[in-house]
């Protein structure tokens, strides 16, 4: 059963990343739903370690792009180089050609380079000199943003943010967890001992399987209800787009599969809504001045929306 293998992946990540089960689960959800993740956090909390552990657990090729202001699109997607021996141009693939890509500090590079990454994320291919090169499958990007540095950054436009399935934060470990981190790392980083728990083929099969997870009409109504309420809410300037509703449904399917279910529960929706919706809404400036966060708005909407628990009248 694939479900156990996913458990195994989770366990692998947990061995490396102590106390970060939620982040691990969400990453797998995103991987299964063929979406990408935006991680907003300060440096040094283990973002790279997390992605590497995930890559190693699924036996995927891991690449990393460190975004800097002078990075060019070709540095991301690759470049054609003239090979004098063969008298022809030869495509040298860029770091995006991996299975699991860590795009570090994506907001530090120019919009041009950002969009080259985001476009390839969307289309699943890159085009260089008229030739289209397919990206590897599975393809999963985990982009990070540093929230405290604003000097010399290029914040991602709202439309681009919409392309990430989930946005999450890592957060600091608590004191006990941090002690545990120190203990484990004293002799050798545990990541070196990780063995793949699932093959890439199996992973692709699971990605296909996710689509088959049942989403009842009532659950869909619940999703639509929630999305609609973000559009009507007094504090929200721009609510969640239908693409957001689709993302929520896909993520919920993956989440259900991760938990060994072939049907989605309202609980899945409630758990995922903040991660799927928060970066897809723009609050009114008054609300922002009052210090209201999108997560708070979502919480209030959840507290006002009925969970569908009755069978529909036929």
């Amino acid at each position: 059963m694939y479900h156990q293998k996913l458990e195994q992946v989770l366990e692998n990540i947990e061995r490396v990343m102590i106390g970060k089960r939620t982040v691990a689960e969400l990453s797998i959800v995103s991987l299964l739903a063929q979406g990408h993740v935006l991680l907003e956090d300060v440096p040094g909390v283990g973002k790279t370690m997390m992605v590497r552990a995930l890559a190693k657990s699924v036996g995927a090729k891991f690449t990393r792009i460190q975004f800097t202001p002078d990075l060019l699109p070709s540095d991301v997607i690759g470049v054609s180089i003239y090979n004098p021996k063969e008298m022809s141009f030869e495509f040298r693939p860029g770091p995006i050609m991996g299975n699991i890509v860590l795009a570090d500090e994506i907001n530090r590079t120019s919009p041009k380079t950002q969009s080259s990454l985001l476009e390839s994320m969307e289309e699943g291919s890159v085009t260089v000199d008229g030739f289209t090169h397919k990206l590897s499958k599975p393809f999963f990007v985990m982009a990070t943003q540093n929230p405290i540095e604003y000097e010399g950054t290029y914040p991602l436009p709202e439309a681009q943010l919409d392309r990430f399935l989930l946005k999450m934060q890592m957060g600091y470990p608590d004191a006990k967890e941090e002690m545990e981190v120190l203990n484990r790392l004293q002799y050798a980083p545990p990541i070196d001992e990780l063995q793949p728990a699932i093959t890439l083929e199996e992973l692709q099969h699971l990605q296909h399987e996710v689509r088959q997870v049942m989403v009842d009409e009532k659950i869909k109504e619940y999703i639509v209800d929630l999305a609609g309420k973000t559009r009507d809410h007094a504090n929200v300037y721009l609510g969640v787009s239908p693409r957001g509703s689709i993302a929520l449904m896909k993520a919920a399917q993956a989440y259900a599969l991760l938990h060994g279910r072939d049907y989605v529960l309202p609980d899945d929706i409630q758990f995922l809504v903040p991660y799927v919706f928060s970066h897809r809404m723009i609050l009114k400036s008054e609300a922002r001045y009052e210090g209201i966060e999108p997560e708070e708005v979502i919480e209030r909407i959840l507290a006002r929306t009925r969970v569908p628990v009755q069978r529909m009248a036929k």
């Binding site: 309202p266 507290a303 009925r306 628990v309």
Partner: peptide
């Protein structure tokens, strides 16, 4: 509560 899921 009406906004509570059955599971919780």
């Amino acid at each position: 509560k009406e906004t509570q899921t059955l599971r919780s």
